[in-house]
């Protein structure tokens, strides 16, 4: 464990809590992409199957369980409890355009052709693009609530911090996972436009709106 990974994990946890709190407090999931959230639940489910086969640490097990539970909790709030507030008209990104190619790629490019390893690879690839429906939704409506933009900033920062963690681990532990690093860089790049808008608008007290 190093400081980058720890702060990355904390940012990730913070993002998930922020989203749950936003939905709970406002009793609404308006502006949140149910498709991105479904894919995140799929990401955690396929990645953390090793909860059953491997024990790494109490920290690792606890965080994995929190991530899985919270992703399904978010889906419950969005698709059952506050279903009436779900903005499906604006959530029109086609998930199959991401899930199908990512599934194909995880069969072709992986560390080991075994079920758990392929599912782990699938989750890494899917995570890198799972935010696209959310970003697409914001580009369609032209704006995001401030709390939603805080959520996205925390969520994007997490993988950026992981990149620093991988640089650290490469130099100090000789650890290098090409699949995670490439996917993590792709994931972070997808946020760059959002990061720019967030820093130039939300940090100056304005709402996140897209230039016309």
């Amino acid at each position: 464990m190093n400081v980058f990974r720890l702060t990355g994990d904390i940012a990730h946890l913070l993002a998930i809590i922020l989203l749950l709190m936003k939905i709970w407090k406002t009793r609404s999931c308006a502006g949140v992409s149910g498709k991105s959230q479904m894919m995140f639940a799929l990401v955690f489910t396929t990645r953390y199957l090793d909860l059953i086969t491997n024990f790494i640490s109490l920290y690792n097990t606890t965080m994995k369980m929190i991530f899985i539970a919270s992703s399904y909790g978010t889906l419950y709030l969005m698709f059952l409890k506050f279903r009436a507030t779900y903005d499906s008209n604006h959530d029109t990104f086609r998930m199959e355009f991401l899930v199908v190619p990512v599934a194909g790629l995880s069969f072709l490019v992986n560390h080991d052709f075994s079920p758990l390893e392929i599912l782990w690879t699938f989750s890494i690839y899917l995570e890198s693009v799972a935010i696209l429906p959310q970003l697409f939704m914001i580009s369609k409506t032209g704006e995001a609530e401030t709390i939603t933009s805080h959520y996205l900033f925390a969520l994007g920062s997490y993988r950026a911090l992981y990149i620093l963690n991988w640089v650290y681990r490469f130099y100090f532990e000789g650890f290098f996972d090409l699949i995670a690093v490439v996917a993590g860089c792709v994931q972070t790049v997808l946020y760059c436009d959002f990061f720019y808008l967030y820093i130039t608008k939300v940090w100056k007290g304005k709402k996140l709106t897209l230039p016309a």
């Binding site: 090793d50 790494i56 690792n60 560390h111 080991d112 992981y162 996972d177 090409l178």
Partner: peptide
């Protein structure tokens, strides 16, 4: 260490 080993990251 390349890739496939016990995954300690989240």
């Amino acid at each position: 260490l390349i890739g496939s080993r016990k995954k300690d990251e989240l």
